[in-house]
Deep mutational scan, measured.
Amino acid sequence: MISLIAALAVDRVIGMENAMPWNLPADLAWFKRNTLNKPVIMGRHTWESIGRPLPGRKNIILSSQPGTDDRVTWVKSVDEAIAACGDVPEIMVIGGGRVYEQFLPKAQKLYLTHIDAEVEGDTHFPDYEPDDWESVFSEFHDADAQNSHSYCFEILERR
């Protein structure tokens, strides 16, 4: 099963200049909980913004210009990325925008964090048809001392 995991502000903004323009430790914990011990696929820009392999996960970098870091697996196509994951129950696609666009048609599940923030962004989550998805989990949280904005975790499964 292919799943996408993303944090989205208003207007589906997911990033600005290779960074997330908010401070939500709870979302980072949600991300870790849902990706640990699963292969993660990301684009080169996302890889560069993280700066290191995510521990406890097979890191697969999709790029037309593969790098030389041998701590991760470099691939040039969506099919190659899927094959590099091996026989696993769930593959997690973690961004960025172009990689989400490439995998959305193949995805069966979306793990979304909806952030109540209007922020400037240069990267967006692809538009998706809500009628194609069923919400199977939703959990709202107010902003607090650690988390700069209110947010809602949601899991959607393709109908």
Results as ranks from 00 to 15, higher is better:
N34R: 09
K32F: 03
A29H: 02
Q108I: 04
R52M: 11
H114C: 14
N59K: 08
E48I: 06
F140R: 13
S64H: 04
Y111W: 04
L156A: 11
P21G: 03
A84F: 14
G97W: 00
H141P: 03
L112N: 02
F103N: 04
A83I: 11
Y111Q: 02
R44W: 01
R71Q: 07
H124N: 10
A145R: 07
D116L: 15
L62P: 02
V88A: 11
L156S: 14
L36M: 06
D79K: 04
K32E: 02
S49K: 01
A143M: 10
A26C: 01
S150R: 10
L110S: 02
P126H: 13
Q146N: 08
W47I: 15
F31E: 00
A6C: 11
S148E: 01
Q65W: 12
L36E: 05
V93R: 01
D70C: 10
R158F: 05
E139W: 05
C152G: 13
P89Q: 08
D69E: 08
V136D: 10
F137N: 13
D116Y: 15
C152A: 09
K76M: 08
S77P: 01
A83V: 09
P53M: 05
T73K: 11
G15L: 01
R12A: 03
M16F: 01
K58V: 09
V10N: 05
K76L: 10
W30Q: 13
W133K: 01
P53W: 11
H114T: 14
A83E: 07
P25W: 05
S64M: 13
I61P: 01
P39Y: 12
V40F: 14
G121P: 00
N18R: 05
D116T: 15
A19V: 02
N37I: 04
I91E: 02
E120Y: 13
P39I: 05
P53E: 08
H149L: 00
H124W: 02
M20S: 00
P126W: 12
I115V: 06
W133L: 13
K109C: 12
N147F: 00
S77R: 14
S77L: 15
N37E: 11
W30T: 14
V78T: 11
D127A: 13
E118S: 14
R158K: 08
E129N: 09
K38Q: 02
N59D: 11
I94V: 06
